[in-house]
């Protein structure tokens, strides 16, 4: 998979558990050790209580489309072959909103409130991305 041309996440100690989880098919989110609030983007400080300790918690991967857009302009060369492509902001049932892509839904069928569930899309040997598909259950 060395021909993967899209941007890859910069994996470091602050986010490694999320990406390790994705490789195992689990959606791991950062939780404050003090107030239990989940936070995204990942950061060293809890914006709700300013505590520094955090742990990684597996969440259901279920949520709904909070908003969407469809890119018709190439900002990253790696996406050139699949224009136009969607980006969604998913509101997880556990609270946080995360950016991702919806797989298997036509761009004209994207709608706010659509129920979705996480799917795990292997990008390279080291990186698996967390994407979503429509949850019809």
């Amino acid at each position: 998979m060395s021909n993967y041309l899209k941007p890859l996440p910069k994996i470091d100690e602050r986010n490694r558990a999320h990406w390790d989880g994705a490789r195992e098919g689990r959606l791991m989110m950062q939780a404050c050790d003090h107030c239990a609030a989940l936070r995204y983007p990942f950061s060293s400080l809890c914006p709700k209580c300013q505590s520094t300790g955090s742990s990684w918690k597996e969440v259901s991967g279920k949520g709904q489309v909070w908003s969407w857009c469809v890119f018709h302009r190439v900002y990253f060369k790696g996406f050139e072959g699949e224009m136009p492509y969607n980006v969604v902001l998913v509101k997880l049932d556990e609270g946080p909103r995360i950016y991702s892509n919806i797989i298997g839904v036509d761009k004209d069928k994207l709608r706010i409130g659509m129920r979705v569930r996480a799917v795990f899309d292997q990008a390279t040997d080291d990186v698996t991305l967390v994407k979503f598909e429509e949850d019809k259950s």
């Binding site: 996440p9 890119f71 990253f76 492509y85 980006v87 991305l129």
Partner: peptide, 15 residues
């Protein structure tokens, strides 16, 4: 913090 979203192709204030 936008760089964290690049793997999903998310970028730009316009988006």
């Amino acid at each position: 913090g936008a760089g964290q979203f690049f793997p999903y192709g998310m970028t730009s204030p316009g988006a």
